[in-house]
Write a protein that binds this DNA or RNA. Structure first.
Length: 432
RNA sequence: UCCCGAGUAGCUCAGCUGGUAGAGCAGCCGGCUGUUAACCGGCGGGUCGCAGGUUCGAGUCCUGCCUCGGGAGCCA
């Protein structure tokens, strides 16, 4: 009876005869010796077939193997420097479990259109496997961070009435007798309610934006992690962000080194991601941009190109704070020191990745919030419950939202967010 | 929605000022005892995105449409 093992556990089985099941990545043969590289999700394994030492039937099966066929192989595990992974298997048995004819993704180049049309199969490639592992690690690190700090996970609704940030296009759907429902683009407002119950809370889930944006930074469905903390002001909020981001990046560096190597990620810029981050006010950022030869009119949001320029002038993430009130959402707290601005901040990742976090201290004054809602011509009755939070024991509180795909793309050093999620949703892509 | 760019073999692409379709890889056949996207030889493979126009003749020029990519706006 053979032990059935996962490739990742093979270093512990050197000297033993084992069976491994997986998918064929490539086969090579030089007539009297054959090689077979296998993947099972825990690693890659090279199996060697010396023709002279094998039953004829095993050699015949080997010759018929094709890319991505599923197989069970049996052999002696052996340490060998020539094998990727350091351990290889000298085969004594080979069983074809599932044939695979004309696998579309060959070991040569492909265009992104073709690859995304075959995303369900592309996911099996080394690079994509590495990305998914880094994503998994980053998400686990996020959850652990909050768990360790006493945050409570609160799941916010994905189907909502007309509420949320003022701008942005929402996906809508019919909702029984209540008219239209909209897919959530943030859980923040609900989290503010939960923060008054539980103190430190966060939500983690998909969010939807029906914007017709076709850029390397946008998806129509993406994942966002949003903490909200009672009694935190904007300064506390920024400290939380730099601790959070540093923790996530550090964990990936620590535990997903192999995957980052597979992705050929230069980790030096990531090693520098430690608190404190740089801090610069919006107004000073404009001055700095002026010096770099780009001028932005005060009151306008900082555009993508300028944002990149700004972020690139720092060697680690930068927190840009106190944006003009008129460029920002209604719920952000007015800056008492300069009422033209609000107590918010963005976190810009270096290396051209730009905004990964948007956060703010929330307006906790009932009348001021109501005035802002009216100013923005938002449906007042829909915000009744939100205003209640300021009516019954209002409290200083702050929070932020971090874009998971943007963060993963940055950590992996990928040019586009769409590779940072298994099945990206974009304007022109709804399948697979 | 706007501004650029691209659609040619299963895939990645070449195809000049218009002259009747080409390479690499993949596939199939054969060879090779340590390969790392193995290598060497051979074979098959096309509605040139769609529709119309100019022309003796269109992959190539013109018009319209479709699809995709990049960017802008908006944001994470």
């Amino acid at each position: 009876m053979q032990d059935i093992m996962r490739i990742g556990d093979l270093p512990k089985a050197v000297g033993q005869s084992v069976t491994v099941r997986g998918w064929v990545m490539t086969t090579r043969s030089s007539g009297k010796i054959g090689f077979l590289v296998l993947r099972d999700g825990t690693g890659y394994l090279q199996a060697v077939l010396p023709k002279a030492e094998l039953p004829e039937s095993v050699w015949e099966s080997f010759k018929q193997l094709t890319q991505e066929a599923s197989v069970a192989v049996t052999g002696a595990a052996r340490a060998d420097a020539r094998a990727p992974g350091g351990v290889e298997l000298t085969l004594t048995g080979l069983e074809l479990l599932g044939p695979s004819l004309d696998f579309p993704i060959t070991p040569k180049e492909h265009g992104t259109t073709f690859l995304f049309e075959h995303r369900h199969l592309w996911l099996r490639s080394r690079r994509q496997v590495a990305v998914m592992r880094v994503r998994h690690e980053a998400i686990q690190a996020m959850r652990d961070f909050f768990y360790q700090r006493g945050f409570v996970l609160v799941d916010t609704p994905l189907l909502t009435g007309a509420i949320g940030e003022s701008a942005g296009n929402l996906f809508e759907t019919d909702y029984f007798d209540l008219g239209k429902a909209y897919l959530a683009q943030t859980g923040q407002l609900y989290l503010e309610a939960a923060a008054a119950a539980l103190g430190k809370v966060y939500c983690f889930g998909p969010t939807f934006r029906a914007e017709k944006s076709k850029t390397r930074r946008h998806l129509t469905e993406f994942w966002m992690v949003e903490p909200e903390v009672a009694w935190y002001d904007s300064q506390d909020n920024m400290r939380l962000q730099e601790d959070f981001v540093s923790h996530v990046v550090g964990r990936c560096l620590d535990r997903r080194k192999e995957d980052l190597k597979e992705l050929e990620r230069d980790t030096a810029p990531l090693e520098r991601v430690t608190p404190p981050f740089h801090r610069i006010s919006y107004t000073d950022a404009l001055k700095k941009l002026e010096g770099l030869g780009a001028s932005v009119e005060w009151g306008k949001d900082i555009g993508g190109d300028e944002e990149t320029m700004l972020a690139n002038s720092f060697e680690k993430p930068v927190l840009v704070y106190n944006y003009p009130k008129k460029a920002k959402a209604f719920y952000m707290k007015e800056n008492p020191a300069d009422p033209r601005t609000v107590l918010n901040n963005d976190c810009l990742a270096p290396e051209g990745y730009g905004e990964i976090i948007g956060g703010s201290q929330r307006e906790d004054d009932h009348d001021r919030l109501l005035a802002r809602i009216r100013q923005e011509r938002l449906p007042e009755d829909a915000y009744g419950w939100y205003l209640d939070l300021r009516k019954y024991g209002t409290f200083v509180h702050s929070g932020f939202g971090l874009g998971v795909e943007r963060t993963v793309a940055w950590i992996c050093g990928m040019p586009h967010v769409r590779e940072a999620i298994a099945f990206p949703r974009q304007m022109h892509r709804l399948r697979p």
